[in-house]
Design a protein around this nucleic acid. Structure first.
Length: 458
DNA sequence: GACGCAATAT
DNA sequence: TATATTGCGT
């Protein structure tokens, strides 16, 4: 942030006409004359003003009545504390926004103060327009806490808890101190006044995580390792070991993934009802249907569901465009021998195989129009994980990490640990025709399924 | 408190 | 549409 930007901050732009009734501002200024003028100015605009001429006095006020101070306006050159020390001390003591006002218009000083935690830097002489809407900063702080739930967004360096100051403006019994998620929405709905203010302010919103194929593969890998009993958000998160990724992200994704599996399962049941003998999973329209795993046909009991879940843990969440894909080559095995479809971008006319990925136009595995793969791992098999390991043609090529989509469509990326390499690699000369391999596998699975069905009947 | 899931919000 | 959040039951 440049000095120009800092100084051009217009806190009035969204809330003209509102009044800072009930906002208690602590003014710290060593020059009594200046203190009187500024205090008077603030009182005219409706602030409740408390004053201090020395840092120690200010500290005392904050210690005694910290919960009643909503905003701190301080000079930097105080007799008992230097310019940055006052900011550090106040920042530690109070979660209220700190505005610095000083005759020093040196850029390094301004930036230094902002770095040390000042919310705004005003160059003396302070005029009416500078102070009349300063109270809105209290709402900015409040908003940061309410919306992000992360106190670390503030410059104060305090904990999240510290930053949930107990504001009394408009609603003295405001529950803004609540930090749990459940409280957030309720709180915003219940405090109408605050809600209005908050709506009107421009808030830094939490960026949305984009589940790229790369990230989803890590997710799948974690599921595979953990198995059905261990595949819970917390464990998955630990296993994924992706910086910046949160349990909520994983929970949400896991929920969606399970829904996908369930949909597939339900679809399969329907298929079975409609066609009592699904002797082939080959789609007459030219491709294989999504139900390539015989385990998927088993339903009903919880244990069976769990089996299904277990056996399909490694399946991508893609919707396997029935009949859209060109050939059976779009169904592949992972190294557990479970058939999984690849993330395949077929052509511009085709559906996205994983519509839940906004970036799926950058899918990792690319087929040419004749259905051949760009690369293979081992005999007729293409390993998603291999692609994962090698860094693939994702939108964030060259970077490794989850992608977050902000309001401005800006993507923030974090570094990703390199996934484990595959244990085995085989000579490319041994690559067999992938379609043949897949067909053989499918036939084997169909046979297995029919035998299971037969056993069930007995 | 973690979890799963449905509903709802963004 | 994808993801985040919430509420509620387990």
């Amino acid at each position: 942030m440049t000095c120009e930007q800092v100084l051009s901050v217009d806190v009035t732009e969204n809330n003209a006409g509102s009044f800072p009734i009930g906002v208690r501002i602590l003014v710290v200024e060593s020059d009594p004359t200046c203190l009187r003028i500024v205090s008077k100015m603030l009182q005219v605009f409706g602030y409740e003003v408390k004053t201090a001429t020395r840092a120690t006095d200010a500290m005392h006020i904050l210690r005694e009545k910290e919960d009643e101070i909503n905003l701190i306006l301080t000079e930097t050159h105080l007799p008992d504390m230097d310019q940055y020390e006052i900011l550090e001390t106040v920042g530690e003591l109070s979660s209220s926004p700190i505005v610095v006002f000083s005759a020093d218009n040196n850029e390094s000083t301004i930036l230094g103060c902002l770095f040390k935690g000042a919310e705004l830097y005003l160059v003396k002489p302070v005029i009416e327009n500078d102070v009349k809407n300063l109270w809105q900063l209290t709402y900015r702080t409040k908003l940061k806490t309410a919306v992000s739930g992360e106190g670390s967004n503030t410059f104060h360096g305090g904990s999240a808890e510290q930053n949930t100051s107990s504001l009394t403006v408009g609603n003295p019994s405001s529950t803004m101190g609540m930090t749990d998620q459940k409280g957030k929405r309720k709180e915003l709905e219940e405090t109408d006044n605050d809600h209005e203010y908050i709506d009107n302010l421009t808030a830094p919103k939490k960026p949305k995580l984009v589940w790229t194929n790369e990230l989803h593969n890590i997710f799948l890998q974690a599921l595979r390792i953990l198995g059905v009993d261990g595949a819970h958000p917390k464990k998955i998160l630990q296993h994924m070991n992706v910086p910046g990724l949160k349990k909520e992200n994983v929970s949400s994704h896991l929920q969606k993934y399970r829904l996908y599996l369930k949909r597939e399962q339900d679809g399969m049941q329907k298929t079975m009802i409609g066609d009592c003998c699904p002797s082939s999973t080959f789609n007459p329209q030219g491709g294989f249907s999504q139900y390539t795993n015989s385990q998927f046909f088993m339903t009903a009991s919880q244990s069976e569901y769990r089996n299904n879940f277990q056996n399909n843990l490694c399946r991508p969440m893609s919707v396997h465009s029935l009949g859209f894909v060109h050939s059976p080559t779009h169904v592949n095995s992972n190294y557990n021998g479970i058939l999984i479809p690849n993330y395949v971008q077929v052509d511009s006319q085709s559906k996205q195989l994983y519509p839940s990925y906004p970036n799926s136009n950058h899918t990792e595995i690319i087929t040419t129009t004749d259905g051949s793969f760009s690369s293979f791992d081992q005999k007729g098999k293409y390993s998603v994980d291999k692609h994962l390991n090698q860094g693939t043609t994702l939108s964030n090529t060259g970077t490794h990490g989850p992608t977050f989509l902000g309001n401005s469509q800006q993507q923030v990326q974090f570094p990703l640990p390199q996934p484990q390499p595959l244990p085995e690699k085989e000579d490319e000369s041994e690559i067999l025709d992938i379609a043949t391999m897949e067909e053989l596998e499918l036939l084997a699975m169909e046979k297995e399924f029919l035998e299971d069905l037969k056993n069930d009947l007995w």
